[in-house]
């Protein structure tokens, strides 16, 4: 049976959401494959997160414990994981395209001399069960589907590209792998002198409803209305790159190729023209509704519902109606 291995990344003692998204997606999409999760760390971290990993819906969980893995060190993690891949020989190996994932995966690929496709937003298997990974390139202007001559098929997956669904029950087998590798020499080469944890905003990319504003809102004051409407509807706010560059909204809520990918049930785009670089971030929205004065704006052909109107008027009307 085709074996798909998903690396479960831990950051700040939490499982990365993208790792859960990949497990959910592969489990739902490739039903004749064995979906396995791989978690690596020191004993304390593993013990704290083991139950949660077991609940994510994979068929199997591999646990690698090694005392040298107490914090992320790309060289140490690379050696441990590459060693496991060599022994376990999965057909497909997937890692979330987080900052650490994008650093770790190519180092593993280079060590194993295998091909790697970065930042994928879609996956499939060909008739020989080889991985076909699709990714945006040239800033989202072109999509490329890439296969590899080497095994395992290896890809990093864009956060938010797939949706995580907590399974009701999970029959997961657990396998402990004792890693005897001595990584001490690797760890002495880099030394973290100081760490300031950033305040991480609550994850909003998987919200059911996202209301986004763009340049058509004409001012920062008008953009504030997006927040107001979100408060009234329970939606999460988002912005186009243009709105962020004008300083109307923080980069943390930017949607698109250079921002986040989102997967809401409903994406409401107010005053956004719909440049490709923006739209690649919303391809996984179930429904898109766009309001724009310009009937020829690209988004009016892309959206499920297109309303030709002034976004500022619509925003004001919505707010006054909901405030009643």
């Amino acid at each position: 049976m085709t074996k798909i291995l998903v690396y479960v990344e831990i950051n700040n003692n939490k499982i990365e959401k993208v790792s859960k998204e990949i497990i959910s997606y592969t489990k739902q999409t490739f039903d004749d494959c064995e979906i396995c999760a791989l978690i690596a760390g020191d004993n304390t971290t593993i013990e704290a997160l083991k139950q949660e990993v077991l609940s994510l819906g994979s068929d199997k969980v591999y646990v690698i414990q090694n005392q040298f893995l107490s914090e992320f060190n790309v060289c140490a993690y690379c050696d441990v994981i590459a060693d496991f891949i060599t022994q376990d020989k999965p057909d497909v190996f997937l890692i979330g395209a987080t900052f650490n994932g994008r650093e770790l995966a190519p180092r593993i690929a280079s060590k194993l001399e295998i091909g790697l496709t970065a930042d994928c937003t879609a996956l499939s298997l060909d008739e020989n069960k080889k991985l076909l990974a699709t990714r945006p390139t040239y800033g989202g202007k072109l999509m490329a589907t890439i296969s590899s001559k080497t095994v395992p098929g290896f890809a990093t997956i864009r956060p938010g590209a797939f949706k995580f669904k907590q399974p009701e029950s999970s029959k997961t087998e657990i396998c402990y792998i004792n890693s005897e590798l001595n990584l001490e020499n690797l760890l002495t080469r880099t030394n973290v002198l100081k760490t300031d944890i950033k305040e991480v905003a609550e994850d909003w990319t998987g919200s059911d409803i996202i209301i986004a504003g763009g340049i058509g809102l004409k001012s920062k004051e008008n953009f504030e209305l997006i927040y107001k409407l979100c408060e009234l509807t329970g939606a999460k706010p988002a912005a186009s790159r243009a709105a962020v560059e004008l300083g109307w909204a923080p980069q943390s809520i930017q949607v698109g190729q250079t921002g986040s990918s989102v997967s809401p049930k409903l994406y409401v785009a107010l005053g956004i023209s719909g440049a490709l670089q923006h739209m690649t971030g919303v391809t996984n929205a179930l429904k898109i509704l766009a309001v724009n004065t310009d009937i020829d704006a690209p988004i009016m052909k892309i959206a499920d519902y297109a309303i030709q109107a002034d976004a500022i008027n619509i925003l004001n009307s919505l707010i006054s109606k909901l405030s009643d």
């Binding site: 295998i114 590899s148 001559k149 739209m279 892309i302 297109a306 009307s317």
Partner: peptide, 28 residues
């Protein structure tokens, strides 16, 4: 090179777009 581009395509992100006409009230 192990990786090979199997196909390249311009992203087709169009959906069956429905234009909603009428007044602001309808839209709201």
């Amino acid at each position: 090179s192990p990786t090979q581009v199997k196909k390249a395509f311009r992203p087709s992100i169009e959906r069956c777009s429905e234009l909603i006409n009428g007044t602001n009230d309808n839209a709201v």
